[in-house]
Structure formats: C-alpha cells, structure tokens
Amino acid sequence: MAKREKTTVAPPPDASFPLSSMIDVVFLLLIFFILTQKPIVEDVQMNVQLPAPDPSNNELPAIPITVEVNKYERDNFDEIDARLAATSDPNEQAKILSEVRAYYVLNGSVPIPLDKLRTHLTNIAKGDADSTIMIKCDPSAKHRKLVLLLDLCSDLELNSLQLVENPARPYVPDPVEKR
C-alpha cells in the first residue's frame, strides 16, 4: 500500500492592511492640508442705509451731520503738484495744500485727517448717539477710506449712517495698472 502522501496546509495569507505605506499617504495628505490652510480672517460687516429709490420719500435728519470722504492721499503728490502748477491764485493753492494730508470733510468745513474726525465724532456721539451721519463719498476715493470711516462710526456706536451720492465730485478713474 502506497504511503499516503502527507498533505500540507499552506499558512493563511496575512490579511492585515499594508499599514506603513498607508500611513505615508495619510501623512502626506495631512501635511498638504496643513500647508494649504489659510489663516482665518475675521470679516466684519458695517451696516449702511441707502436713500430710498424715490427721492421724495427720503427723510432727512433735522440737523444733518455730513462727512465727505475725499480722494486725496498722502502718496499722490504728482497730482497735487500738477494742480498747484495749474493755478497762480494763492488762496486756491492754500486750499489745495490743505487737502494733501486731509481725508474727510465734516459739515463742509476744512478737510481733516481721521484722528481729528474721531475727536469731533466722539463729541457728536456723546451728545446724541442716534444722530444720523450722512456720508458723501467722492466717487474717485478708494473704498478703504469709506470703510475706515464706517469702522470709526461703528467704534463710536454711531449706527445711523446714510450713504448718499456726492454729485459735486467728478469720477476720475485710476490709471490702469500695468500687469
């Protein structure tokens, strides 16, 4: 009788995941997402009121406080120079120079920088926090100046802000940036 062949059972294949390569991939993904994560920037929102579409419905405050945002900035001296050169009237020149470092005009008086405007608006806010501030923004002014003013009003808790058109100022487009 032939000797019965001894059958050998093959050991079961290793049923575990290839962990080490998976960890490599997972770590790569983790590093990718950490690196591409943008820092969280907190947005702030400032409410403004718009005039009603029909001008006759607009309720104007009894004592309007207007703040004009003008376009001049510290760095555009070329334009200021050109305007100074164009006039020979000393009064006109003084007026131009007063605008160089000024950003805002309160109630139609002389242009003042933001810190001075803060002093004035603080007094207004102490008197009556419900005062409506009419903001007239020069169409050529940068948006950041308007946002700075809105931010100032928000800080002083002047919440009634009305953004109105300023038709007196012409729109002068910025020179197109070369890319």
Binding site: V41, E42, V44, M46, N47, Q49, L50, P51, A52
Partner: peptide, 19 residues
C-alpha cells in the same frame, strides 16, 4: 449699491477685515 437700491432692499452692509 445703486443696483441694490433699485430693488428697494435696504439691509445693506459693507465688509472689512479685522486683522
């Protein structure tokens, strides 16, 4: 703003960033 104003919607806010 004019485009929004034409619809009569009035809850308008402008956005800035904190930092």
């Amino acid at each position: 703003l004019e485009a929004v104003k034409a619809t009569g919607l009035y809850k308008v806010s402008l956005t800035g960033r904190k930092e």
